[in-house]
């Protein structure tokens, strides 16, 4: 089973996770820029973070044969802090980087006027830089959050097939299904979505435009739940090809729209000399 996790925050994970992910079949990941739990108060802490997403973290992933790409944005929570607003001015130079395959995570947290502004500005950046957009949907008041997100997406002029709305569930799947946008599902140990529920959604709505991710981060989460979902699909009668479509070909197709996805074999399999600084525990 080859797995592409289209949403996982590896910066918050350990090398043990990378080892277990590689053993489970994870060969590529996309790491969206998000908030770090602790609020940031200056632009510099964002640019250091973004630099790590296009520098150190892809190197770390490469040691385990995992290809790493990123999405870059000012996240919805910190869009509300005036001190973070100048981050928007730094984004254009990151959106030209080779490893950046979308603008994200953008969208809503509390649906404030500040979030409206920052969401719309970043969708415009996605259009300007010819990149897809990765939209986080809010955990509170989710249905209205999804409806409002879809309205902002439609107004921006970005093509719906270049947008994914993430963290969907039974209440929001149909809203997005009918728009032509992609559908993201975050499989969590107890919140968001579970493997058995995901299988039911795939039975009801098919595998087209469906993305399954672990969204693993610094909270209680599990980077192997993509694999668990693939196994649950097989047990429920889906074919190997269905699983490959959901866990590999769909994310490749979605992020491939950036023109920057690099999944050459060398990158995926070569156990290069470069690995040793991490595999041996650093210098």
């Amino acid at each position: 089973m080859r797995i592409f996790d289209p949403h996982i925050h590896m910066t918050s994970r350990t090398t043990d996770d990378y080892e277990r992910m590689a053993a489970a079949g994870v060969r590529a990941v996309v790491e969206p820029a998000f908030w770090l739990g602790q609020p940031r108060t200056s632009v510099g802490s964002f640019t250091d973070y973004f630099d790590s997403l296009v520098g150190w973290e892809p190197f770390r992933a490469g040691q385990f044969g995992i290809r790493h790409h990123a999405t870059i944005a000012l996240n919805p929570k910190e869009a509300n802090d005036r001190r973070c607003r100048p981050v928007l001015d730094e984004l254009p130079r990151y959106l030209e980087k080779d490893g950046v395959v979308a603008v994200g995570e953008i969208g809503y947290d509390s649906m404030t006027p500040e979030e409206d502004d920052v969401f719309a500005a970043q969708l415009a950046l996605a259009v300007a830089h010819d990149l897809p957009a990765m939209v986080h949907t809010p955990h509170r008041d989710k249905v209205r959050g999804v409806e409002r997100s879809l309205a902002v997406v439609a107004e921006s002029g970005i093509a719906p097939e270049r947008v994914v709305l993430d963290h969907l569930n039974e209440m929001t799947v149909k809203l997005v299904r009918d728009t032509g946008c992609w559908l993201g599902f975050s499989i969590y140990p107890d919140t968001k979505m579970s493997p058995p529920r995901m299988v039911e959604l795939l039975k009801a709505y098919g595998t087209d435009r469906m993305l399954v991710n672990s969204a693993a981060d610094w909270g209680r989460s599990d980077p192997l739940l993509t694999r668990a979902t693939g196994e649950a699909m097989l047990l429920a009668g889906f074919t190997d090809d269905d699983v490959d479509r959901v866990l590999w070909r769909n994310p490749v197709e979605f992020y491939g729209q950036s023109g920057r996805l690099d999944l050459t074999d060398d990158d995926l399999t070569e156990p290069t000399f470069a690995g040793n600084s991490i595999l041996r525990g650093g210098s």
């Binding site: 000399f273 470069a274 040793n276 600084s277 041996r280 210098s283």
Partner: peptide, 9 residues
């Protein structure tokens, strides 16, 4: 020395 430590040929 760092090369030797980190496996850079």
């Amino acid at each position: 020395l760092k090369c030797v430590f980190t496996g850079v040929p």
